[in-house]
Nucleic acid binder design. Sequence first.
RNA 1: GGGCGCAUAGCUCAGCGGGAGAGCGCCCGCUUCACACGCGGGAGGUCCCUGGUUCGAUCCCAGGUGCGCCCACCA
Length: 810
Amino acid sequence: MEPLYKPDGVEARWQKTWEEEGLYNAEADDHRPTFVVAHPPPNVTGELHTGHALQLSLADALVRYHRMRGFNTLFQPGYDHAGIATQNAVEKHLVAEGTTRQALGREAFEQRVWEWLHEYGGKIMVQFRRMGASMDYRRERFTMDEPYVRAVMHFFVHLYRKGWIYRANRIINWCPHHETSLSDLELVHVELDDALTYVLYPFADGSGGGVTIATARPATILGDVAVAVNPGDERWKDAVGRDVIVPFVERPVPVIADDRVDLDFGTGALKVTPGHDPLDFEIGRDHGLDEPMVVGWDGRMSEAAGELAGLTQAEADKRILAWLRERDQLVKREPYRHAVALCERCETRIEPLISLQWWCSMSELKEPALEALRERRVRYHPESQHRFAVGSLEHAPDWNISRQIWWGHQLPLWYCPDGHITVEETEPGRCADCGSSELTRDRDVLDTWFSSALWPFATLGWPEDTPDLRAYYPGSLNTTAREIIRLWENRMIFTGLELVGDVPFSDVIIHTTVLAPDGRRMSKSLGTGIDPVEIIDRYGTDATRYGLLKLTSGQDVRFSYGAIDEGRKLANKLWNVSRLILSNTSGARHGARPKETVEGWILARIEQARTELEEHLGAYDFAGAVNLLYHLTFDDFCDWYAEAIKPRLYDGDGEAQATALAALERLLKLLHPVLPHVTEEIWTNLPDRKTRLIVAPWPEPDSAHAGDPGALDRVKEAAEIFRRSGVRVPLEGEQLRIFEAVVKPERQKANGNAEAEIERLRGEIARAEKMLANDRFVANAPAQVVEAERGKLERYRRELETLGGAAESL
RNA sequence: GGGCGCAUAGCUCAGCGGGAGAGCGCCCGCUUCACACGCGGGAGGUCCCUGGUUCGAUCCCAGGUGCGCCCACCA
């Protein structure tokens, strides 16, 4: 064993061994209680980022903890086909080759996606292994696998037959680049410096005057069908019911009243363009207005724009502004900063357009899920996210499930020439209505999240009634980021209840968002991302896991190499204290034989730590857990215990050796879920190992050492006092030996002084005496607080006596 | 605009009603046979501000300020 622990070789070797020996495997016929984590399937084109690494660290720590505790553990790996994200990645690749998706055509394009995935996809599973994620990699699933596709089709047909899937012409978010609709959740908003244009719409009766509106998109004036004002707006009271003339197209439209119009924006008058604005669309529908679309699917002015057809919106803006200026109807133009919606994948500006799309009705589907959440059959951690989850589900709008991209699950809908629709899981021979065999399949594909929603059970073979499904559903835990709750978490819950009859998991951990060291979000485009593989290369996997878990305290936390380095130090420390013990215990017997105070003390400390660690892990307090492990190892095990027993180890004291091995064995078990590799490596070097640590049983409660581990307190305190003061040791027997071992190295040169320490103690004593002399304190403070204060006072007096006596004796 | 979170040592963060802490960084001393990626010692803090509750507030409450994340159709 080398003095410096080098993780690279060790970690790779264990990752290989654990997997090859089948220790990650989950078997459905294993009848122990289950612990199941269906890990979020990353995009098949994705690479590990810091969020993934954090998520894996905490999930794997819990998986390993439960595996040791005897659970039949399934940690499910896999990928998502990630519709637009993947299509976008492959399209970029095609551009580099000098071609386009359109030039290839749909079938050839799909073929290229598969080829591309075989070549470049799947990288992340290698990275998962490098994180030490103890997943059953035999069970890797992909949402485009044939059985998974069948599950998706089954789901669609199920919903359709229940009457919850319908087609409607509504305003949607259209990405002109991807030529598809997008849900609100697939957009990003960016602030833009723009202009707000005030335009006069003259009254149609020629009586002079008119209504002035404000718009950020003059080009859409061509699609105006009304002007709306708030019914409570005194300024426009007399205009309501009259007609005004839309500029440029010179069409008369009514002035209507609608309370959704904001009194405080612009002039309080809104031009109504149902074809190109969500609010206008709603107002239009409620007032029975026309829905002309003057912007087309390519984002340019459409045929309906007449002489402006084919222009870009910016060009159309200019033409319309010029027209307005000539006629003095351009009231003013002012700088205006506002947020615009972009496609999150290609950052193209989103066009709100009216389109015929497929929708999934949420009203009935969400109710059982809401009930499950309210009854806490699914619990969010932290609890604060529970309210958000419930609220977002309560207000979930109907779900636009159709997309006009090419990569994804094609809708299982067939049309005959008469327009009848046939819905089947697999291609039907003839039309269900008229028997026609001339069927054409719908070209649309499903929203990626439609298939993700099935992940916890489609990975187990659903809709078949498989042994896996029976054994591993419902699962235990899901881990995810805050913004994924509505996209995924809620949907898994309602689909699980609807299709399998139970919630997919009982607990959801919404983990910390790791920010860049400067406090901004980690993002490739900002250049603030940190590659976890680089961290692993520099510090090792164990250290990376430790550091990331240490950072899980708040809702957002800044990444810090210091936290990772702490993990590296811990692994190295553990390695070295193990060297000390292992190189001095050859032939030692088994079982702890604590004789001296420090030995009973370390066993009690480890036992206390076991209890506390179980509490931390049970509460998903990973920062607390790693903090505890660090101090247990560094302070208690190394600084005090190991230092104290060194002389006896060197002397070949068989009982001390046996106790040291037993204590180390227990310590390794507690550390394994966080630092799996270094602990397994040391474990292998312990004498007579029959099992791997990864499957070794978690320590049972140690009733023999369950007491208060305060036995060493006096010795430790005395040692610290003397270290500071440099005074000689007045202790005897065992205490003297401990003291010799701990203090000897530092005693050579005193650089504090006893008098300063005596001063400090006198100050503490005065403070405690003052508090206890305060009658109101004694009368009002809880008894144990007063008692604690008395205890401190006694302790300080005792220390002062010891120190003073020792100083005297010099 | 809404929701949530954060403000404690130079940095990253614990603590959350009765002595202000850790890791890193800094200073001093140690070639001690597990570890110099180490050991020991030390300096360094109006615990964001203002009020309130309490015998007592870094901790609880209210208001403010600053920062962050998420969400949102003010044209």
